[in-house]
Amino acid sequence: MESWDIIITLLIIAGFLFFLSAIIALYWAAKNGQFESIEKGARVVFDEDEPEGVEMDAFPQSKPKKQKNHS
C-alpha cells in the first residue's frame, strides 16, 4: 500500500497541473481566435471538390436532385 501512496501523491499533483493547463488552453484558444469568426468555421467542411449548396449523397441508381425542386 505504500507504493500506492506515492503514486497517488504524484497523480494528484498531475491532476492539478492538468486542471491548470485547461485554463491556460482556454485562454490560448480565445487569444488565438478559435472563438472568433465562429460562423465561418462552420464552412470548413466544404471545398471546391464538395462545395456548399450541393447535395452530396442519394440512393444509388437515382440521380441527385441538385438544384431542382424535389419531384
Binding site: 460562423e39 462552420a42 449548396g53
Partner: peptide, 19 residues
C-alpha cells in the same frame, strides 16, 4: 457534425452551439 452539413450542402445551424 461532418455528414449532416456535408450531405445537405449547408453549414451547421449554429457553430457556436456546437463548440
Amino acid at each position: 457534425y461532418y455528414m449532416i452539413p456535408k450531405v445537405i450542402g449547408k453549414p451547421i445551424y449554429s457553430y457556436y452551439l456546437s463548440l
